[in-house]
Amino acid sequence: MTRQNRMQVLCLIAMPLLATASPAMAGWKLKPAGQAAIVDNITITPAADWNQWTGRPGKQGRTWTRDGFELNSLEVFSGVPNGQPLYRERNRKQNPLPKFDKSMLLPDLATFFERSFRTYYNIADFTVNETVPDSISGHQGIRVTYRFVSATDELVLLGEARLAVVGGQLYAINFFAPELHYFDAGIGEVHDIMDGAQISAK
């Protein structure tokens, strides 16, 4: 086997593995309680200790969790530019992510979020419960509350996201957790985090 052939075989082996790589297996960084944390262009201050994943769910995104992604996930997206998706593409050919458009109106943001979330997490059973006006760091936006069922365990999860367009870029904070115990246990602190978030972009 030539070197070139060997490389081709290795790439063929690597591709499906990379496609199914588990995001849970990256590194972690402690985000201590009471300390302001700069997450790209957003500053948030948690009341409890959180863990920040060293990987990224999207180019402008970060994920925090307290007990693991399936039990509580807090995603912070700061400054998604025009024409870019919220999350990383997982299957661009068969299931592409929608692209953010800076001309989107607030109701469009809710649809954009729903399509992005469903596609990235491959969710079949997803319902938006409510979409209402809200804000991030004083900028007008929307709040989307939603419910979905995980494919792995058929577990019902609830979520709440706030989205706003600032300077033509999208900012979003999204929390989701199982309906049983974990959502109620976390949403109080998450509301404080969302209310206190400061966008530093100009």
Binding site: E70, S150, T152, L155, V156, L180
Partner: peptide, 9 residues
Amino acid sequence: ADYRSLFST
């Protein structure tokens, strides 16, 4: 059923 799912998770 819901707690069975939560336990697995």
